[in-house]
Design a protein around this nucleic acid. Structure first.
Length: 835
RNA sequence: GCCGAAGUGGCGGAAUGGUAGACGCGCCGGUCUCAAAAACCGGUAAGGGCGACCUUGUGUGGGUUCGAGUCCCACCUUCGGCACCA
């Protein structure tokens, strides 16, 4: 047989064409079979194209989808484009083009690259969030939220990114900076559209218990929502007919209040400040306004604040305490006012020290001798100096005080959240227009469903104005319209929705991507959803992954779907790291801006897509970051070349009818028996590993199988068709096919078969064949290995013990010592305990 | 500071409480070759011994157990997240 070298470039393109012609990856809705919906975060198409880093996201899902297909599932594995939004628009600006031109160009390139890697997407379901067919339904869902009272316009202070020229949601601000461009955000007061995600806070926390997500992401969401239970109560302000309402989670410490604090922005500040304090207070308020955002970034912040001149009364003991304003109290959380208990809160303690305020202990630490505290005591303890509550454990005291306050009307149990409503307006061009018009007579009017989509007009100059006004506001033909209610003159809302609106429901659209009478077909959504496995980066923990859960719950409440969580299992793939060109000993994330990108194009050109795929699967568990290594790829190329060669060298001994005789033949010689055993052990191992997403060890198992098979072919001296060899090579190719699909299909055809391995059933292992006949008995003395004895797998305990004690290697260690115990673990080891 | 994840050869990483280092990379030696590359075969935790073997070894210190990389306690380090949320 003429030896053919393994030239992946030749075969890969051929098979990609054949897969396409056969529509091999088209999702079938058989419905008599189980379904599997595998999904990756849909990317925004960038001009930089895909790197091998992006492939780390797509390859594992591709393997599991191909595997599930062979397992007999109806598989949905779609791909689409997060084409609306800031990243796409910024990129077009940078390249002095228009997003409507750049997006299709970049999409075509992404698609080309994805096919190059052999990803099994059903392209008949491709979606694009910037297409009117799609965003029409984004607008439709906006109106649904509006109808349900979950979308509203408000003038609360919001975060403004001066560089992006738009407002941002809270989730898009990281450490006081814009998450995209790292510019410091400013506070502005511009009326904006919000989604009332806070209404779903409790459900968003509780339902986390039912989904298979990384614990770290769940924790991040819980912390972001930040539920805390406490008590809200009134403190009367001396000399005024006013009181300040405060929130505390430590009502048990209320007898230790030695001052109270208002946020600088609190409306009461103006009213209660005494004339002699006014100048200083106003000065502080002014400073707080200007510097608070920047200050927040410094870790060692001073606990500043000023006295207002007013006093508040502690409702529990009637004591008057001074009221301060301080920027460590936030206007946006709770009531914007607190009771301060320096003895039991570290911030209040610092403030009290700095301003010379009393520190009164009311929760005694265990063994407390009455001395002064050197730092706040925030742990549990016994209540002291707390009137009738003295002597109670503080937790119990908290309950009693809350009850007492409830009964006399001073306070109530209250739950607060850190979560703020989701700000959706953007003063940018490239997004779905918010479907609202403002009529002089009728006021705010939603655009009727029949008039959707509100199309985004094409404009030459779409750059952000930076004034807080959307670029759409400069287009009279867009702005001026008629009121859908009264027909009178009206103006359109000119803000667009942030990109996270588009991505909050796209996974539903794939179920019925061309549905025209709704965002999706209910039956199709109920069949395919929820997503069984969702793979993407962890950076979306409190953005996309939170928003999508919220929208899913709203759609469920409207009766449009029958599930409440969109993504059953979630995994975060690890990053691909490459050396920093500025400092090659440092590994950093592969990115265009750092100049260390490797493209799949150059790698497939050199080694082929299958080598790239196996490399990214093998090098580490999918959730770990990896250090890119071309030597590593070459190793995978070598592995695949050896698979290739074994078919070239021994393919003539392959018999497609091997099933008839294989068990007989495999029992004929020890060599046959051993390789058959390895084959069936490998089927078990690879199956289990793919099921549990441990692709690295699955690939390692295939390498082991190949190593054994190579030895077998060298020793067996094959001279005619062999059922044992045939089973081995067929199983090797089958198990390899989800990871290296091009090579598998090529060799499968070279062995004389038609069609695609994807259409084959996944093999089952035979436990009888996989069973080891002989095991290595490890003999330990006091836990140290002293001998290894091969024994038949079914040797009984007594015999094992006897063999161990008779071992020549073991004897010297028993010499002159008393045997105290012999532990026998059948099939594994013996431990002789001497003393 | 709080929360989360993780520390294993030269490197990436394997190990239901039961032979630590599977598999791969790199390196060393060999075969083939005029030579090199490729390919193939063998070796490769550290220390000791001619050797069979022995000793040590999974971040540190304790503990539980016949037996601990794995479980428990304390600590150290790295990475990721949050950033005064009362």
């Amino acid at each position: 047989m003429a030896e053919k070298r393994y030239e992946p470039q030749e075969i890969e393109n051929k098979w990609q064409e054949r897969w396409k012609e056969a529509e091999l990856f088209k999702a079938k809705e058989d419905k008599s079979r189980p379904k599997f919906y595998g999904l990756e975060f849909f990317p925004y198409p960038s001009g930089n194209g895909l790197s091998v880093g992006h492939c780390r996201n797509y390859i594992p899902t591709d393997v599991i989808c191909r595997y599930k297909r062979m397992r007999g599932f109806d598989v949905l594995h779609p791909m689409g484009w997060d084409a609306f939004g800031l990243p796409a628009e910024n990129e077009a600006i940078k390249r002095k083009s228009h997003p409507s031109e750049t997006v299709p160009k970049y999409v075509a390139n992404y698609k080309r690259q994805m096919n190059l890697v052999g990803l099994s997407y059903d392209w008949s379901r491709e979606i694009n969030s910037s297409s009117p067919d799609y965003y029409r339904w984004t607008q439709w869902i906006f109106l649904l939220l509006y109808k349900r009272g979950l979308a509203y316009r408000s003038g609360a202070p919001i975060n403004w990114c001066p560089s992006c020229g738009t407002v941002l949601a809270n989730e898009e601000v990281e450490g006081g900076r814009c998450w995209r461009c790292e510019t410091l955000v400013e506070k502005r007061n511009i009326p904006q559209w919000f989604f009332r995600i806070t209404e779903y806070a409790d459900r968003l926390i509780n339902d986390l218990d039912d989904i298979d997500w990384p614990e770290s992401i769940k924790t991040m969401q819980r912390n972001w929502i930040g539920r805390s239970e406490g008590v809200e109560f009134d403190m009367k302000i001396s000399g005024y007919d006013e009181s300040m309402r405060v929130f505390t989670t430590r009502v048990d410490t209320v007898f230790g209040v030695s001052f109270a604090v208002l946020a600088p922005e609190h409306p009461l500040v103006e009213k209660i400040t005494t004339p002699d304090r006014r100048a200083e207070v106003e000065d502080y308020v002014k400073k707080a306004k200007v510097t608070s955002e920047i200050d927040r970034l410094s870790t060692e912040r001073e606990r500043t604040g000023v006295f207002t001149g007013a006093y508040a009364v502690n409702p529990m003991n009637g004591q008057s305490v001074p009221i301060y304003i301080a920027d460590y109290v936030l206007a946006t959380y709770g009531t914007g006012a607190i009771m301060a208990v320096p003895a039991h809160d570290t911030r209040d303690f610092d403030f009290a020290k700095r301003h010379d305020l009393p520190i009164k202990v009311v929760i005694a630490p265990p063994g407390w001798d009455g001395s002064e505290l050197t730092e706040a005591y925030t742990e549990e303890g016994t209540m002291v100096n707390s009137g009738q509550f003295d002597g109670l454990p503080n937790k119990e005291g908290a309950k009693k005080i809350a009850e007492y306050m409830g009964s006399n009307g001073t306070g109530d149990v209250k739950v607060n959240y850190k979560l703020r409503d989701w700000l959706i307006s953007r003063q940018r061009y490239w997004g779905a227009p918010i479907p609202i018009v403002y009529c002089e007579k009728c006021g705010e009017v939603p655009v009727p469903e029949s008039m959707l989509p509100v199309e985004l007009p094409y404009v030459e100059h779409y750059e952000p104005s930076g004034t807080g006004e959307s670029p759409l506001a400069t287009i009279p033909e867009f702005v001026n319209t008629t009121c859908p209610v009264c027909g009178g003159p009206a103006k359109r809302e000119t803000d667009t929705m942030g990109g996270f609106a588009c991505s909050s429901w796209y996974f539903l659209r794939y179920a019925s991507p061309s549905c025209t009478d709704g965002p999706f077909d209910k039956d199709a959504a109920d069949y395919w959803l929820p997503v069984d496995l969702y793979v993407g980066g962890a950076e979306h923990a409190v953005m996309h992954l939170l928003y999508a859960r919220f929208w899913t719950k709203v759609l469920h409440d409207e009766g449009l779907i029958n599930f409440v969580e969109p993504f059953h299992a979630l995994r975060n793939q690890g990053m691909v790291l490459a050396p920093d060109p500025k400092n090659p000993s440092v590994w950093i994330k592969m990115s265009k801006s750092k100049g260390n990108v490797i493209t799949p194009d150059e790698i497939t050109e050199k080694y082929g897509a299958d080598s790239l795929r196996v490399y990214e699967l093998f090098v580490a568990p999918m959730t770990e970051s990896i250090q890119w290594s071309e030597d590593g790829i070459n190793g995978m190329y070598r592995f695949l070349s050896r698979v290739w060669r074994i078919v070239q060298d021994y393919g003539e001994f392959y018999d497609p009818e091997w099933r008839n005789t294989v068990r007989q033949e495999s029992n004929s010689t020890p060599g046959n028996k051993a390789i058959a055993r390895k084959v069936h052990q490998s089927i078990r191992k690879v199956t289990e590993d793919i099921e549990s997403l441990q692709f690295n060890t699955a690939a390692a198992a295939l390498m082991e199988l190949l190593n054994e098979l190579s030895k077998y072919t060298q020793n067996a001296k094959l001279d005619s068709k062999s059922a044992v060899f045939s089973e081995s090579i067929e199983m090797l190719l089958t198990l390899l096919s989800p990871m290296a699909p091009h090579m598998a299909d090529e060799l499968w055809n070279q062995l004389g078969h038609e069609g695609f391995m994807l259409d084959l059933p996944w093999p089952e292992y035979d436990p009888e064949v996989a069973k080891a006949e002989e095991v290595t008995l490890v003999v330990q003395v006091n836990g140290k290995v002293r001998d290894k004895i091969p024994v038949p797998a079914d040797t009984d305990t007594k015999k094992i013990e006897q063999l161990a004690l008779e071992s020549e290697r073991v004897k010297p260690f028993l010499d002159g010592k008393k045997i105290r115990n012999v532990v026998v673990v059948p099939g594994r080891l013996v431990n002789i305990v001497v003393g």
